[in-house]
Every structure is written in C-alpha cells, then in structure tokens.
Amino acid sequence: MSLKDSSEAVFSESPGKIALRNLRKDKRSIIALSILGFIVGISFSAPLYAHFVAHTNPFQSTLDATISIHGEQKAVLEPSTTGLGLGVTPIGPTWNLGKYFLGADGQGRDVMARLLYGGRSTLLIGTTAGLLCIFLSLLIGIIAGYRRGWVDAVLSRLLDIIWAFPVYLLAISLSVVLLTSGLTIGFIHVGPGSFALPIFIIGIVYIPYVARPIRAQVLALREREFVRAAVGTGAKSSTIILREILPNIMPSVLVFIPIIVSLSMLTESALSFLSIGVQPPAASWGTIINEGLGLLYTRPIVGIAPGLMIVLTAAALNLYGDAVRDALDPKTRARGD
C-alpha cells in the first residue's frame, strides 16, 4: 500500500475503517483466517465425523474391539506376541478415514475422532478464557488508571499477587475440590467435568499481562487535554470512560485478543498435560498429549498430532495478531509488502 492511499482516506473514513481495509488486504490475515476457519470447522464437525465417517463413540472404551484391515481381522489393542509377550499396543494409523485414521489410544478409542472433539474443547476454553481475561483486564486497567490514588494502589497490588501466584497450586487445589464435591459459589454450582474451572483459572492468569499496559495507557490518557476538558465540564465518569478513554485504548486491546487467546490455548493444554484441566473421558488437545505420552515409544502419533494442531492454531492466531497490529499501526509493517 502506498502513503497516498491512506492520506486520502483520512478525510473520508474513520481510523477503524482504514484499519479494517488494511486488514482485508493483508495476505497474512487471509492465510491465518483460512487456517483458523478450517480448524474451527473440522473441530465443530467432530460429532458428524464420529457418527457418520468413523462410526465410533470416542468416549466409550473398547478394549476388546477388532477391526478388519485388508480382510484381516485385527485386535484394536494387540497384546505383544514377540519375545516375552509383554505389553499391549494400540493399533497404529490406518490412514483410512473410515476407521482409526490415526490409530487407537490405550482404551481402544479412535484418536482422530478424539482429536476433533479435543479441538472443540481447546478452542472453546481458549477463546472463552481469552475473552474473559480481556474483559477483566479492561475493567481493572481502566478503573485503576482512571481513579488513580488508593484504588490504583490496591488494584496494582492485586495484579502483583496474581502475577506472582503459583497457578498450578490453584489449579490442582481447585480441581480436587471440583472433582470431589463440586464447587458452589452463591447460586452458581460448578460440577465435576465442567469447563468452568480451566476457563476461570486461565482467564485470571494473564490479567496482569494485559491489565498493566491498559492501566498505563489510561493513566497517560487521563493527563491528555481532551480528557481533562471532559472532566472539567462535569461529565459523568462512565461517560468519559466510554466516550473518550475506551475508543483510544481499543487498538491495543484488539491487538491483545489473538495473542491472549493463543496463550490461553497453550495454557489450557499445559494444565491438561499436568492432568488438572479437562477431565476424562472428555478430551482436549492437552489431555490427548498427556495420554499420548504413555504411548510415546510405541504410537508417537497420539502425542504428536494434537501438539501439531496446537502449534498450527496458535501460529495462525499470532499471525492474525500481527496483521491486526500492523493494520492499526502501519509503522511496523514488513517492508516487503
């Protein structure tokens, strides 16, 4: 794009519209969105795949199942027949979408179907937790930066505490509570196996990461002429925040969204990897990696496939994040474009 385009546009379009137009023209955003669209599409068609293509229930253990490959009947979980006959190995990838495309896991379940279902959980948790995090960060950042004084001091210390708090302790303890008795806060009851736990934990972990820069921006904005002027006219705080502050911090918030969603997904998988996230028999990419670790030496694909899905999704989100950032602030654009 040339300078001429954008300088002309300034007179007729708002900055938001320009950004949107920049974004639409960006190759990276097109690539990233098509990858994300593909992943979301296949993940949310998981039940269709399991039911109509693989004809399997990926949550039902089938330890004694058999399948026929090239007319030959084979056990899905094959006991070793060589040497001392130790160990049982699940069937490997058949590369046949109809049955066990990526092989079976330790319970004789279809890994491909579980991978798709797992994608659904990971995407759902990652996105919800990411948005929750952004929302809470906005709230904290704006209040701290706008009110200043003791409110800011208290909230800043709160952020310090969250930042330095051992997330895994919180996760482990909460998951024990949840798993064993369920958690009741007021009228909300969170039962075992609910996604609320990972969403809640991941949602608060990254608050300081986002809230601190927002607070700093709001603090700076608070000193600007147009905000002072608005305060001087006696406008309500909420009006000032909504009319003057929020639009000015929106660009950086928008940049944060893909990054935080990607971070949330990575954290979800890490928590599940430490077996404190999504609970069995439900699947997420992290839990499948965790289960796959037990098969790393015999069926590495079970652990590697969900890892690759995470990398692909996170990379697409980050790529999109880059495109959004550059669209809003073209200074950092790659010079090649």
């Binding site: 998988s269 890490a270 995470i310 692909l312 999704t313 980050n318």
Partner: peptide, 9 residues
C-alpha cells in the same frame, strides 16, 4: 506457538 512441554517430549 510451540508448547514447551510438548517440544521437550
């Protein structure tokens, strides 16, 4: 975008 534990494994 690489999960560090997965890369390590």
């Amino acid at each position: 975008s690489l999960p560090v534990y997965w890369l390590g494994e």
